[in-house]
Design a protein around this nucleic acid. Structure first.
Length: 827
DNA sequence: GAGTTTGAAACT
DNA sequence: CAGTTTCAAACTC
C-alpha cells in the first residue's frame, strides 16, 4: 500500500510531465477560442469552461494533450490512494469568495481571477474563479491567481496583468495557460499558452512563484505532494463559478452538441434573467452529457477527452445552474476517477446534433433558473467520484460525501444504501444501476483516427454495448412522503424513478449535492443508502437511469444475493460494479426514459408502483417493500416505506423476518434438480379458484408452471404443451385420470363400507331401513354420482350417455343401500 | 373508475 | 397449524 502511495504521489504530478511532453504552446493556443471580438462573449466563457474542464482533468491526474483544435485528455492509471477527493459543490452565501462574476458582453475590460484554494481543512478543493468586473471601464485585462496560503485563509494573489490592448484572444490564451494549473497540495502551476511568453507559476505550500519557461513542454512538475497521506491536502476538486452580474441571477449553461460526424463539443455559458426568488442560491448541476442530450452542446468548440491509459476514465462535468439572488452561478467540473470501474464518457445523443450559437444574450437556457420546480429543469446533481480516502471524510464545505473506496457497499439488491460516516446526518444513496456481467469498461468516447471523436462529459460506463446510467438525485429524508416529480405518463414507459425532496423545489436544493466516488458508485448496489455525516449535506438518492435491472437473466442467482431491505450485505457482489455510471440530470433521465420500455432490455419489467393504502407500505402486501425497495413514484397513501421513516421501516422489516426469515428472499428460484433451469416458485401457490391461470396466481404471474410446491386446487398452470414436454403433460393428465378413478373407487368403497356398517337403530331398538339413509350415506352417494359425472366428462361422453351412466351409478348406490339394509335386517 | 374477485399475508 | 381476517392486486363491468 505504501508503494501505491508512492506511485500515487508520482501520479499526482505526472500529468504535468505528460502534459509538457504532449502539449505545445501552439496547442494551447489552439485552445483559445477564435473570435475577433475583443469583448468577451459566451465563447470566451466557453473557453473558460474548457479551462475548467481541463483543470479538472489535471486534478484528476489526467494527461491532457492537445491536438490542434482538440483537447485530448487521457487519464493516468491511478491507484486508490491517489484518487481525487470527492467534490461537493457549494452555493449560496458562501459563494462570495468563489463566485466568478463575468461580464456577459460589451465590456472592454476583462478581469479574470483564478483562485486556487489549496487544501483547506475541510475543503481540499481548488477553486478557480473567473471574475469579470462588469460595467467598469477599466482598460486592462488581468488574470489573477488567488491562492490561499496553506489553507489558512490568507490569499496570495498572483496577478498577471496585461495591457488593455491585449485582445480577448490573448487574454484567452493566457487563460488557457491556467489549464495546467494544479492546486493540489498548494501547488499551482501556470503555464502560458502564448508561445513566446510561457509562464509558469508554481504555488507550493501557499507560496506562489512565478517563472517563465521558454518551452512549455519543459514544464514538468516534480513537486510531490507532501501530504499524500493526508487526504485533506488533496486538491482534486476545482470549482468554477460563473456569475453574470448583469442579471439578477446568473445562469450558466453548458451546452454542447454532438454531431456524429463532427463530434464536437462546446461549453456555453448563458446568462438568463430569471425571476427566481430563491435566496439560498440553489445550485443546479448538470453534466455536459446532459447538456448534450439537451441539445445544448455546440459544435464550435471541440473538446476531446481521450483516455490514454488502459483504465479509461471519464470526466464528470457538472454544472450548477444557480438561480438565486446571489447573482451567481456555479459550475462544477468534477473529474471522475475510477480505478476498477472506469467510467465511460457518454456520447451525446444524436438528437442533439444541432449547433447552437453561443450568443449569451439570446440564449435561453433549458436549465433556466426559473421558478419552475420540475426536476427536468432543475435537476439536482450528485457527483460520484472515486475516492480512496478514508471513510467518512467530509469534503468541501460540508457538502461532499465521500464514499470510501474501501467501503464495501456492494449489494445485489436495489436498495438504499447506507454509508456510515462519522458524523451527523445520514445520507442515503439509492443506487440503481444496471447489473452487468461485463468486466470491461470501455470508454466509447475516445480519440478516433480522425481525432474528431467526441468526448462527452459525463460519467458513463458501457458494458457489453449496453449503456448503463446511474442517476443521482437528492432525496428528502425529512419528508414523510416523497414527492413524485416525474410525469406519471413516463412511469409505465420507463421505470425511471426519481426521488426529490418533497419539501423544496428543486431549485432550492443547492446543497443537496453529494459527491460519491465513481468507484464507490460502481460498487454500490442499487437502492442502497449512503449515510452521510455532514449535516449540511442534502439528502441524496441515487436512482437508476434504467430502472434497476437488478434482476438479471440469472434471476435466481441474483436474487439469492438479494439483501434484506435496508440492510447491507458486504458479501454481495454488485453485478453492476462494472456498469456504466452516468451522472445525469433529470433531463437526461427524461431522454433516457423515452428509450425505456415497459420491459427492460434484459427482459425484466420495471416494478410497478404500489397503491397501498392501509399497510403504510411496511408489510409484504406492498410489492415495493417486499422487494426491499423504497416506494418511489408510487400511489400509496401514508407511505412509510421511505427514508424518512427508516426506523419504522426497519422495525417492519424485522417483524417480517421474524415471521418469515425468508420473507425478503426471492420467491422465484431455480429448481433443485441438477441442470434444471426451470424456475420454480419456492413456496408455491395456493390458488383455489383461478385455476392458476390468472395473475392472482404468483406462479402464473411469474410465467412459471406450478410445481410440487404448490397447493393449488384445480391447477391448470402446467407446462406448455411443447412437443418435448407434451409427454409430461400427458403423464400429468393420465395421472389426473388415475387419481379421479381412484377417487371414484374410494368413494364407492366408502359407500359400501357405510352400507355394511351397523345400521342406526330407532328409539325402540328396532332397526329401520330408512335409518340407513344417513347424511353420510347421502353424501357418499352424491360423491359417487359426481365422480361418475366427472369420469363421463373426462371421457368426453355425450350428455345422454353421461346421464345414463350417472343414473346407473345412482341405481347402483341405491342397490347397495338396499342390500345393506337387507343384510342388517337379516342379522 | 368503481366494484368484485382473488390469494398472499397477517392475524388469531 | 388451521382458520379467519386483512390487504392489495387482478379482474370485471
Amino acid at each position: 500500500m505504501s508503494v501505491n502511495k508512492g506511485q500515487n504521489a508520482r501520479a499526482l504530478v505526472e500529468p504535468l510531465a505528460l502534459d509538457s511532453r504532449t502539449l505545445g504552446d501552439g496547442d494551447l493556443s489552439a485552445l483559445a477560442l477564435s473570435h475577433n471580438n475583443e469583448q468577451y462573449s459566451s465563447n470566451d466563457f466557453e473557453a473558460f469552461a474548457n479551462i475548467q474542464a481541463e483543470l479538472e482533468c489535471m486534478n484528476a491526474e489526467e494527461v491532457m494533450t492537445t491536438d490542434e483544435e482538440h483537447i485530448i485528455i487521457g487519464r493516468n492509471i491511478e491507484t486508490e490512494t491517489i484518487v481525487p477527493d470527492v467534490e461537493m459543490t457549494e452555493v449560496s452565501e458562501q459563494a462570495q469568495e468563489e463566485h466568478i462574476i463575468y461580464t456577459t458582453a460589451n465590456q472592454n475590460n476583462q478581469n479574470i481571477v483564478f483562485q486556487t484554494k489549496p487544501t483547506l481543512q475541510r475543503l481540499p478543493a481548488s477553486t478557480v474563479q473567473v471574475k469579470s468586473n462588469v460595467g467598469q471601464v477599466t482598460q486592462s485585462q488581468s488574470i489573477m491567481i488567488v491562492s490561499p496560503a496553506g489553507g489558512q485563509g490568507t490569499s496570495q494573489i498572483l496577478k498577471i496583468s496585461h495591457p488593455s490592448t491585449a485582445s480577448a484572444g490573448q487574454l484567452q490564451s493566457l487563460a488557457q495557460t491556467l489549464i495546467t494549473a494544479k492546486s493540489a497540495d498548494n501547488i499551482v502551476q501556470l503555464r502560458s499558452a502564448q508561445p513566446n511568453k510561457p509562464v509558469m507559476a508554481t504555488s507550493h505550500s501557499g507560496n506562489i512563484t512565478l517563472g517563465s519557461v521558454q518551452n512549455a513542454k519543459t514544464v514538468q512538475s516534480a513537486i510531490k505532494r507532501t501530504a499524500q497521506s493526508t487526504s485533506q491536502n488533496r486538491n482534486v476538486y476545482t470549482k468554477m463559478i460563473l456569475a453574470g452580474n448583469q442579471t439578477p441571477s446568473g445562469q450558466v449553461l453548458i451546452t454542447s452538441s454532438q454531431n456524429e460526424n463532427q463530434q464536437t463539443q462546446a461549453i456555453k455559458f448563458l446568462n438568463n434573467s430569471t425571476s427566481s426568488q430563491d435566496v439560498t442560491s440553489p445550485a443546479k448541476t448538470i453534466t455536459l452529457a446532459q447538456a448534450q442530450q439537451m441539445g445544448l452542446l455546440s459544435t464550435n468548440k471541440v473538446q476531446h477527452i481521450l483516455p490514454s491509459s488502459p483504465q479509461k476514465q471519464g470526466i464528470i462535468v457538472n454544472k450548477l445552474v444557480q438561480s438565486s439572488s446571489s447573482q451567481t452561478s456555479k459550475m462544477t467540473l468534477v473529474p471522475s476517477n475510477t480505478i476498477k470501474s472506469p467510467t465511460k464518457i457518454l456520447p451525446a445523443p444524436t438528437m442533439n446534433t444541432q449547433v447552437k450559437t453561443s450568443t449569451i444574450s439570446n440564449q435561453q437556457s433549458t436549465f433556466s433558473s426559473s421558478n419552475k420546480s420540475t426536476v427536468q429543469q432543475s435537476p439536482q446533481k450528485v457527483i460520484i467520484r472515486q475516492s480512496s480516502l478514508k471513510p467518512g471524510t467530509v469534503l468541501g464545505s460540508g457538502q461532499v460525501i465521500r464514499i470510501p473506496a474501501n467501503q464495501n457497499i456492494v449489494t445485489g439488491s436495489n436498495q438504499v444504501h447506507q454509508i456510515q460516516m462519522p458524523s451527523r446526518q445520514v445520507q442515503y444513496v439509492r443506487l440503481v444501476s444496471t447489473p452487468s456481467s461485463g468486466t470491461t469498461n470501455v470508454v466509447t468516447v475516445g480519440k478516433t483516427k480522425s481525432q474528431t471523436t467526441l468526448q462527452t462529459v459525463g460519467v458513463g460506463q458501457k458494458l457489453g454495448g449496453q449503456q448503463q446510467i446511474v442517476k443521482v438525485v437528492p432525496l428528502n429524508t425529512n419528508n414523510q412522503s416523497l414527492r413524485t416529480v416525474a410525469p406519471k405518463a413516463t412511469l409505465t414507459g420507463s421505470g425511471q424513478r426519481l426521488l426529490i425532496p418533497a419539501t423544496a423545489t428543486v431549485s432550492n436544493q443547492s446543497k443537496n449535492a453529494v459527491a460519491i466516488p465513481a468507484s464507490a458508485l460502481s460498487q454500490l448496489a442499487s437502492g442502497q443508502a449512503v449515510l452521510s455525516t455532514n449535516s449540511n449535506v442534502g439528502n441524496i438518492v441515487v436512482l437508476p437511469a434504467q430502472y434497476i435491472q437488478q434482476q438479471s437473466a440469472d434471476d435466481a442467482k441474483l436474487k439469492s444475493q438479494q439483501a434484506t431491505p435496508g440492510l447491507l450485505s458486504n458479501s454481495q457482489n454488485l453485478q453492476s460494479s462494472t456498469g456504466t455510471i452516468s451522472v445525469g440530470s433529470v433531463l437526461e433521465n427524461k431522454t433516457s426514459q423515452r428509450s425505456y420500455t415497459s420491459v427492460e432490455p434484459n427482459g425484466i419489467r420495471p416494478r410497478k408502483p404500489c397503491n397501498c393504502t392501509k399497510s403504510q407500505c411496511l408489510k409484504l402486501y406492498c410489492d415495493c417493500f417486499a422487494n426491499g425497495e423504497f416506494c418511489h413514484m408510487c400511489n400509496c397513501n401514508n407511505c412509510s416505506n421511505n427514508l424518512g421513516n427508516e426506523e419504522e421501516r426497519q422495525r417492519a422489516i424485522k417483524s417480517c423476518l421474524e415471521r418469515n426469515p425468508n420473507a425478503f428472499r426471492p420467491k422465484i428460484g431455480k429448481g433443485r434438480e441438477t441442470g434444471d433451469d426451470i424456475r420454480r416458485h419456492n413456496k408455491g401457490c395456493n390458488c383455489k379458484r383461478s385455476g392458476c391461470l390468472k395473475n392472482y396466481c404468483e406462479c402464473y404471474e411469474a410465467k412459471i408452471p406450478c410445481s410440487a410446491n404448490c397447493k393449488c386446487i384445480g391447477c391448470r398452470n402446467v407446462e406448455e404443451p411443447n412437443l418435448e414436454k407434451k409427454s409430461l403433460k400427458d403423464l400429468a393428465e393420465a395421472a389426473e385420470v388415475r387419481t379421479a378413478q381412484l377417487t371414484l373407487n374410494k368413494t364407492k368403497l366408502q359407500l359400501s363400507e357405510m352400507a355394511f356398517r351397523p345400521p342406526a337403530t330407532s328409539n325402540t331398538g328396532a332397526r329401520q331401513p330408512f335409518n340407513f339413509l344417513t347424511d353420510k350415506v347421502v353424501q357418499i352417494t352424491c360423491e359417487c354420482l359426481m365422480a361418475q359425472a366427472d369420469e363421463a366428462e373426462r371421457n368426453m361422453f355425450d350428455d345422454e350417455t353421461s346421464q345414463r351412466l350417472i343414473i346407473e351409478e345412482f341405481g347402483r348406490c341405491l342397490k347397495e343401500i338396499i342390500e345393506s339394509a337387507h343384510k342388517a335386517e337379516a342379522t
